[in-house]
Design a protein around this nucleic acid. Sequence first.
DNA 1: GCTGCTTCTGTGAGCGTTCACAGTAGAGAA
DNA 2: TTCTCTACTGTGAACGCTCACAGAAGCAGC
Lengths: 343, 343
Amino acid sequence: MTMSSTGGRRKPPTIHDVAREAGVSRGTVSRVLNGGHYVSPAAADAVDAAIRKTGYVVNRHARSLITGRSDSVGFLLTEPQERFFEDPNFNVLLRGCTQALAAHDIPLLLMLAGTDDERRRITRYITAGHVDGVLLVSSHSGDPVAEELRAAGVPLVACGKPIGLGSKVSYVAADDRDGARDMVRHLLALGRRRIGVVTGPLDTPGGVERLAGYREVLAEAGVEADERLVVSGDYSRASGEAGAERLLARAPDMDAVFVASDLMAQGVLTALNRAGRRVPQDVAVGGFDDSPAAVAASPELTTIRQPWDRISSEMVRVLLAQIGGEDPAAVILPTELVKRDST
Amino acid sequence: MTMSSTGGRRKPPTIHDVAREAGVSRGTVSRVLNGGHYVSPAAADAVDAAIRKTGYVVNRHARSLITGRSDSVGFLLTEPQERFFEDPNFNVLLRGCTQALAAHDIPLLLMLAGTDDERRRITRYITAGHVDGVLLVSSHSGDPVAEELRAAGVPLVACGKPIGLGSKVSYVAADDRDGARDMVRHLLALGRRRIGVVTGPLDTPGGVERLAGYREVLAEAGVEADERLVVSGDYSRASGEAGAERLLARAPDMDAVFVASDLMAQGVLTALNRAGRRVPQDVAVGGFDDSPAAVAASPELTTIRQPWDRISSEMVRVLLAQIGGEDPAAVILPTELVKRDST
DNA sequence: GCTGCTTCTGTGAGCGTTCACAGTAGAGAA
DNA sequence: TTCTCTACTGTGAACGCTCACAGAAGCAGC
């Protein structure tokens, strides 16, 4: 009875068993397993059959021991935990990376390092060689982990350009400035002229670039810049709410807001609603990300789509290339305006 | 210049280097590493010092090769991907499990198996022994993975009682029935008598139990049962919205709804709002989960808190015990009524 | 003295794989 | 024939660790 918890697990077949079954040597089986070069068709067939018959699966520990590679990559999140819970973007990215890696049969180790203590532990773990490379997800730039890993020579790809590390670290990012430009142009096209902005944190590339795009387009259109229309947030819903309140107090005639994230835009909607402003009639609201938060909001948000599926697949591609010995690379992907009900 | 991408990774120290440095044998170093029994204080100190000096970290592949254990566990999600994106509960659970495992220095491998194809691959991967055990997260019962893993003898802990597998599989769950009872009692205490319910899928234990709790309390209170007040959903936001519309059509005098998940409750709010019903004045709405969706909703949801932090830590505890050879176990945890603005 | 026991230490073997190398067979060219 | 080249195959030696075992040293009791 109680055996059911432990029973059923007998010794798995080894490469030896397969070799014996196929009537060839270990070496030949190994060659079949690793691409099949320099193997006669007859031998290859025999090995394939033997593998099927024995149910053989390669022991990754033994393989890793000799190759020095772990055939797994880490997905490292250095955000404090509440951001991970709150922001649906992480979910999408995680899912995308998992799938892209699955195509290469590479498992993903999720690593969360919210506190300094955890960060130390994880860094040690990674530099000990337990993963072949790291997908780094963190929006802030002061992050010491990226620099430590880079210095240790660990292949690394960041999501979003890490400020201050120059070209030594690979990254994949959406074209933040261009996306912001599209949104502000869209708001102008609707006839809005008093366009506010709730920026992201200005120590993040996304925060800086999206604000720059906003300013550029207004200047190009000859619309008077008004610093009362600029407030900054930290990508959280609460900061969006607070930002909108400040904007309304400072510029009651505001007829549109460009918000640097969908989550903040949700907060903006809450604040506008409370102030009795109708969206989009009185104030048009444009978000950024096209995260699940965009359709969860009411009204559904007009936003800038970040191509998360491509971002994740590119991150994986660049990381694997780097593990394979290539140099770091930067990839910038285009964004797209998605019109919904808030503008 | 381009060396910077590959350089910096020299051969890590082995147990041999430590032994030489400490002036002892491999065996002694290994003993220190694994608990330090039968080692003289002097030798232990020398080894500790040598480990610090050389920066030695044990090579897990080599260790796993001989012990046959991987010292890692899998977090397996067999939901279709949209549910993973949408439902914040998964996030919370994932985070909790990661942290609980981190305390044991055990990394977590995230495995997503939304399609049949992925399911096959992952099952093969797991049964090949690449993880020591699996934390299984999936709400539906028809799930073949649980049964396959159980049959293969893989230590397994499910989140929520798996229907149809009896006592052979460990699980950790919140007390769904009791939580539902609390919520319905709360609605009754507010003077509501025409209380509707949007259930979860009735092939999930949560769906069944929460509905049962609802029925029990109404019966106990002598409130007339009315099947027009009962509709079922699938835990998605959209199904909550559709459910509320059906309820309003069939029982326009409804003055409260108990919704079996916060996410569905968000949909219910949307539908009520569109129908011009004020919440909570006209219709009180009670959710379930106390997920981030509860505070994201407006008005913020009164709900039943599932103790996610305890659920995840218990799942990890039970799994590790089972890996250590103990028998499967079931853990039921209490819930708690959280009052907010929707009732 | 010898025997037995406990505590500690070193050594050889082996986990399952890949890699480098040596070697075989057959074809084609001189 | 002999030599060279290509296509393929087998074998021993690692990889870094743990485990089982054999021994050494110290101490007690006879």
